[in-house]
Design a protein around this nucleic acid. Structure first.
Length: 455
DNA sequence: ATGTGC
């Protein structure tokens, strides 16, 4: 190890820490150009190469870029939309939820209501959410309240394969499967009234949370470039503690090619979430006579990406490539890329809970800038694998018991519900408690689910 | 996560 690994944990979460995940954090610390620490957020669990909940920052001159530090679902992320509705307005919740389920394509391999042309796909990959807005699926304001305004620079479509393009073209505007979901939530508790006011959140309000990523396009880009970077690691004589850490120097053509293709997938994911936002607003507009302006975006964050950012290291401003895999940017007050009016508060940070448990709205802090390269948890750390969850949990009885506690779940099968059972995940409240107490983000609000649609 | 797996 070139630097120490550092874990953010509590006694309780230490109990769910896997040996494999610890080894993976150590492996990150062996990579060239690793800066200060490899970092584990409290929702850490065993992943491909990097643990999920892992953060690694690398210097531009000596450092590397690794697809294993981003994940297969490039720019898997989450956004939160508010409505003027209260819980009591949702007498027809089940009807509206069914309407959302019918309107938003969910599940593996599903197709969007629009298949975009090759030219449009190029624009989606280079312009991100802006393309969606220009097509009439949202407002300029949506872009202001989105990390990077929904577009990472440096996207180069020449590094995206035909196979990836073919998979991506029919999927923009689809939710996907696994832990991806759309949730109708209610704001239960405000911890920081000033920040909540700035973010446009109040107690009792109905909100919509959307969690999804770059679908088959991002998956294929990851697969394609992993192969190239396995060769590149050998070529540049980078010793790998694990083959899954395939990587290339940030300054190499192979490294630059992955970064530019990764940006294409990240931009696609932002367009995807914006498209789903549009479909959601259409359904709610019809059901409750609301306008788009009645349903503003609180914010949109990515959980799986590597980005070139400036951070202060030992008192010096340094340009780094920050890998966040199952981790969220949590830029504090005075940082670059904050939404309007947030200079004194920091960026909004959205932490989805597992199905049936609370989600949180946090804000970025000075502590994150000082200790974690402006990063915090992402909220969904598994304790049971999918197959373990399916074996030990009955999806049918879970759906029933959630129903009894006022949470409606629409899903394609009992198995898909079992896989995402709250018991298959680390408790979101404990994860958030750790990042709040460590000062790497601060609690703003807690939201409870009342309706879930999932693939 | 994924047109889910050797």
């Amino acid at each position: 190890m070139r630097v120490p690994g550092r874990f953010y944990l509590s006694q309780q979460l230490m109990g769910t820490l896997e040996e494999g995940a610890v080894r993976q954090l150590a492996n990150i610390a062996t990579l060239p150009g690793i800066c200060r620490n490899s970092l584990a957020m409290p929702d850490i669990h065993w992943g491909y190469g990097f643990p999920i909940g892992g953060v690694g920052a690398f210097t531009m001159d000596e450092g590397i870029i690794s697809p294993g530090g981003v994940g297969f679902d490039i720019n898997c992320g989450v956004r939160l939309i508010t409505t003027p509705l209260q819980r009591s307005d949702l007498g027809q919740l089940k009807k509206v939820l069914q309407e959302l389920y019918n309107t938003i394509p969910t599940g593996v391999g599903t197709k969007s209501c629009v298949t975009v042309s090759d030219h449009e796909l190029n624009r989606i990959m280079t312009e991100g959410a802006r393309w969606t807005i220009e097509e009439g699926y949202g407002t300029e304001r949506d872009l202001l309240w989105c990390e990077e305004q929904g577009c990472i620079e440096g996207a180069d479509i020449s590094h995206v394969s035909q196979k990836a393009r073919k998979r991506g073209r029919p999927q923009c505007g689809t939710l996907g499967s696994g832990n991806h979901f759309l949730e109708v939530q209610c704001v239960e508790e405000i911890f920081d009234p000033e920040a909540a006011r700035t973010f446009g959140i109040e107690t009792g309000q109905i909100c919509i949370m959307i969690h999804c990523g770059s679908r088959g396009l991002g998956h294929q880009i990851c697969t394609d470039h992993l192969k190239v970077l396995e060769g590149a690691a050998k070529k540049y004589r980078i010793p790998l503690a694990d083959k899954q850490l395939a990587c290339a120097p940030l300054t190499s053509p192979e490294g630059e090619a992955y970064l530019s293709a990764m940006a294409c997938a990240a931009n696609y994911a932002w367009a995807n979430r914006q498209m789903i936002t549009h479909l959601t607003r259409e359904v709610l507009s019809r059901a409750f006579s609301l306008s788009t302006e009645d349903m503003p975006l609180v914010y949109d964050v990515t959980h799986n990406v590597a980005k070139i950012e400036e951070h202060v290291v030992d008192g010096t401003r340094t340009t780094l490539c920050v890998h966040r895999k199952g981790a969220t940017r949590a830029f504090g007050p005075g940082s670059h890329d904050l939404p309007p009016g947030c200079d004194a508060i920091g960026q909004p940070v959205i932490i989805p809970g597992s199905m049936g448990s609370s989600s949180y709205l946090l804000r970025g802090t000075d502590g994150a800038m000082e200790k974690t390269f402006g990063s915090t948890c992402h909220g969904a750390g598994r304790v049971l694998s999918r197959s373990q969850a399916k074996k030990t949990i009955s999806g049918d009885s879970l759906q029933e018991s959630l129903g009894r506690s006022g949470i409606t779940v629409l899903a394609p099968s009992a198995g898909s519900i079992a896989e995402e059972a709250p018991d298959a995940y680390k408790p979101s409240a404990e994860v958030v408690k750790v990042v709040h107490e460590a000062g790497i983000s601060a609690k703003v609000a807690r939201l409870n689910p009342i309706g879930v649609i999932k693939g």
